Simulated assay, not measured.
Amino acid sequence: MEEVERDFSKELDVAVRIVHLACALCQRVQRSLKPTNADQVKSKDDDSLVTVADYSVQAVVSWILSESFGSESVSIVAEEDAQMLAKSELLQPVVETVNASLLEAPRFGLKLLGIPLGLNQVIEAIGRCNSSGGPKGRHWVLDPVDGTLGFVRGNQYAVALALIDEGRVVLGVLGCPNYPVKKGLVNHHHQVTSENSSASPDMWEKGCVMYAMRGTGKAWMQPLVYGDLKVDSFKHARSIQVSTIEDPSLSTFCEPVEKANTSHSFTEGVAHTVGLRKKPLRVYSMVKYAAIARGDAEIYMRFARAGYKEKIWDHAAGVLIVQEAGGVVTDAGGRPLDFSRGIYLEGLDRGIIACSGAVLHEKIIGAVDVSWECSLL
């Protein structure tokens, strides 16, 4: 007998509101951001970037989830480290940004007590996101700013929040502040950014939140909220679906922009083997999953270089949204991604393949097998 899915409507409602609020926070920070501004951007030990927005979103999400569901029962898996922030010059700007955002929470239907927060409370909120997940219980999974380099450059980035219940992703919310609301503009401007686009400004309405709950067979999209997020806002969301294209020669495929942790040469080989003709759509962050879910692209291929381990917060929300929109996501061996084994996607076979449908997915998996024999990955 098929297992009956639990209802996570309350959790989804809160999560969507939180992501709208977090996107508003990110937009304010991004407008004032310069790549060379040492007061806003720092490097972490692994040379990746961290900004005021990364820490601020994590603190805001942590605080609101704890207020909404009880700090004792909320388990959060997230990227940023509280101890690093405590020693950083970013601490004071983060506290100011967090409090400015929390003061706006009622506009998004989120009622909060005990604000403004002090330095120690902000550090505590970030430090509360220290869960390692696992197969038992419920765990929120957060990437506060996925694609920080894209964020710093004024390009694509995402706020990603998911919920894992007993090892399965049961809801996913993906905020994409710079992603065009209207379909077609992604292909109109290949790099998916408003800069230098010949589209008229009124066409380029950007910023949306996509979300899905497991087992519903539906994924939804709302434009970013700039007024009040009313109780009935979900009624005005529109459903999104993957593309119906099955011919590889007509398909658009996505891959990461950066070469540091992925192999463009291998995906190029797979593309040649399967007959993909279009140039790849190289996009920062989980916006690639958004492109698949909404039908702007058909294929996402990611093959990490040796030694790199995929983290669950980089995929959980996007994978579920693509699946509920009608797509297929597996590793390169055709197996479902396993989010139950901690902060990493352990046991991953070579890479990750997301497709708009089973026919394309089967063709890509076959092309990977052929290309793998002559690769150096």
Rank of each mutant, 00 (worst) to 15 (best):
D165G: 03
A293K: 06
V52G: 10
G172M: 12
G327S: 06
T193A: 02
G227Y: 03
E11C: 11
G275D: 09
R282I: 05
A22F: 13
V145H: 01
A125I: 07
Y284R: 11
T252P: 02
R214D: 15
F303V: 04
F234Y: 10
H315N: 12
G147H: 00
W220H: 08
T148A: 07
G127W: 12
L12C: 09
V242A: 09
L161S: 03
G342P: 14
D338P: 09
V61E: 06
V322L: 04
H264P: 10
N261E: 07
R341N: 15
W372E: 04
I312K: 01
L348C: 09
L110K: 12
E104K: 13
D81M: 07
K44M: 10
T97H: 06
S131W: 12
V368Y: 06
I312D: 11
P144R: 00
G318H: 02
V359W: 00
L276S: 00
V209T: 05
E96L: 14
V145R: 00
P280A: 04
S285R: 00
V257H: 03
T273E: 15
E346D: 15
K311H: 11
Y55K: 05
L25M: 12
G366L: 00
L113E: 13
R107L: 09
W140I: 09
K363H: 00
G70T: 05
S375L: 09
Q241W: 07
S243Q: 04
E124Y: 10
Q27P: 03
E268S: 15
L117C: 14
A237S: 15
S249N: 10
E255M: 13
A38N: 03
C26D: 12
G307E: 14
A325V: 04
D369F: 05
A332Y: 02
E346N: 13
A105K: 05
Y179H: 10
P180T: 06
M1L: 08
A105Q: 01
K44G: 02
M301Y: 05
H139L: 13
C23T: 10
A290C: 13
R6V: 09
A291W: 08
G154C: 10
C26L: 09
D7M: 02
S32E: 14
A15V: 12
A293Y: 01
S71M: 03
L112Y: 07
Y211K: 05
G137N: 07
V4K: 14
H190T: 03
A199T: 09
S265I: 12
I76P: 07
K206S: 06
V370K: 15
M84G: 02
E124C: 11
S194D: 08
S263L: 10
K278H: 07
L281G: 05
W63H: 14
W220K: 14
H20Q: 12
E195L: 10
T267R: 01
I64K: 04
L348G: 01
D46S: 11
L103D: 05
V319N: 08
G137S: 07
D349N: 12
T36V: 08
V95T: 02
S340D: 11
K111T: 07
T51V: 04
